[in-house]
């Protein structure tokens, strides 16, 4: 079981306080949770719908709860504010209602960490505007008809949603598919960043 980590996962680990309680939605084969257990001594659970990935996660010794993020599983299993971090990597765009899920994540978790591919990246824009076709890139390698990514957005779209839902962005990082960070990405993230990492929480409610 090699634990070859993407820099995306390493960046997430940097955002996690040691010994915290973590929930990983769409945990896949459990690589991230395993890494967080080893390096951050977190306690946690993964939620994953795919049977094969459940088996792989279990082989890593991860607690994995087979669940459907489009249903009510999250609210069924967890009380509000019962988890320190609810993490979701590269899955926001595949769920049926990202806005409702985001809200749920921030009800159950004190903070959330979310990563997703940026549809505003220049390659996407170029393919659509110059070729007149739906983009296919290394970050989004599917055809328009078989893609599981049904709710793609740009960084700006996501931040607009956060603003609308009174969600505060605590930290943001942008990487490319090699998960490197460059100066250009820092200056023009929505144009040059391929994958975004956000750490968010609910703003303390005021009478606004």
């Amino acid at each position: 079981m090699s634990l070859e980590l993407t820099p995306e996962f390493q960046l997430i680990a940097d955002w996690i306080e040691p010994h915290s309680q973590v929930l990983d939605l769409g945990c896949g084969d459990g690589t991230l949770l395993k890494h967080l257990q080893t390096t951050r001594s977190v306690r946690g659970y993964g939620m994953e719908i795919d049977p094969q990935k459940n088996i792989q996660a279990m082989l890593k010794g991860i607690n994995v709860i087979q669940s459907n993020l489009n249903g009510h599983d999250l609210e069924h299993y967890f009380d509000p504010h019962s988890v320190d971090y609810v993490i979701m990597t590269q899955a926001l765009q595949v769920v049926s209602r990202p806005d409702l899920l985001l809200e749920n994540m921030l009800t159950i978790g004190k903070q959330s960490i979310i990563t997703f591919p940026n549809f505003g990246h220049w390659k996407m824009r170029a393919q659509l505007s110059l070729r007149g076709r739906m983009p296919e890139t290394s970050a989004l390698p599917y055809h328009w008809y078989d893609t599981p990514n049904i709710h793609l957005c740009t960084f700006k779209d996501f931040e607009d949603l956060c603003e609308q839902k009174n969600i505060e962005v605590i930290a943001r990082s942008v990487v490319n598919t090699q998960h490197q960070r460059t100066l250009g990405m820092r200056l023009w993230p929505n144009l040059l960043g391929e994958v975004a990492l956000y750490k968010v929480k609910k703003r303390a409610s005021n009478q606004a």
Partner: peptide
Amino acid sequence: SREIVRALLDNDLDVSYAEVE
């Protein structure tokens, strides 16, 4: 079974759950 899982999670116990087709 999900009732059982929920009760175990309430106690922060290690639990895995599979719903087999």
